[in-house]
């Protein structure tokens, strides 16, 4: 059941992104979509609106890049509670560390191994 919910929520988040790309002028590129979804996810999360999506959709809400924003926001809020002002600076990056480190390491390895095919 959780797999079906992940499919639906994950699919819907991507569908919103696709509609934004197709219905706005050409200036909205994939880079803009990624940036917009990270910041949007973080803001929704801080307002307490993203957590319900994660409850329903599981990975369907955490795997889209908006889930990365959610992760950053929740990490910050938690760290602020635990460490105060220092936490405001450290929390987000700590929470995002796994994804970022994995992306850099695997990105580097793949770039060394493979050549673009065109």
């Amino acid at each position: 059941m959780s797999i079906v919910m992940a499919f639906i929520i994950g699919g819907l988040i991507c569908l919103v992104g696709q509609l934004i790309m197709d219905l706005t002028p050409y200036k909205v590129t994939p880079a803009h979509i990624l940036v917009g979804f990270v910041t949007g996810g973080a803001i929704l999360s801080a307002l307490g609106l993203y957590e319900p999506l994660v409850k329903i959709g599981g990975a369907g809400a955490t795997i889209p890049i908006s889930g990365f924003g959610h992760n950053l926001a929740q990490g910050t809020l938690e760290a602020v509670r635990a460490r105060g002002l220092i936490g405001a600076f450290s929390g987000g990056i700590e929470a995002g560390a796994v994804g970022i480190a994995a992306a850099v390491i695997f990105g580097y390895i793949m770039a060394i191994i493979f050549n673009p095919r065109g």
């Binding site: 801080a46 910050t76 580097y108």
Partner: peptide
């Protein structure tokens, strides 16, 4: 490799970090 890696990921991280620190400051 190393500098181009972040052509798209860089902006994502920059804005992600800015927003998360702002959220932290507001919360504090």
């Amino acid at each position: 490799v190393a500098s181009r890696m972040f052509t798209i990921a860089g902006p994502v991280l920059v804005y992600g970090f800015i927003v998360s620190v702002l959220i932290g400051l507001i919360a504090y």
